[in-house]
Amino acid sequence: MLGIPDKAVFLAYALSVFSALLCVLYGVANWNKGDEPIQTEDVQWAKEEKEDIEETL
């Protein structure tokens, strides 16, 4: 198939493309799902992370 005689190699080629397609389909199907309000702990975490990096640099 497509000049590749070994089915296992062809399968890897095809699965690489199909798994990328799976990612696209999953992402599109769930595009608007999973929105969560940002909580205080998220903001607190981000502030501390930013401070840490700034201190290091």
Binding site: S16, S19, A20, C23, Y26, G27, K33, G34, E36, D42
Partner: peptide
């Protein structure tokens, strides 16, 4: 990342990018 939604959406570009 701030929500599961951001991860769901990021899967699209991530899959294509790695391919």
């Amino acid at each position: 990342v701030n929500s599961r939604q951001a991860l769901n959406r990021a899967v699209v570009a991530g899959g294509i990018f790695i391919l």
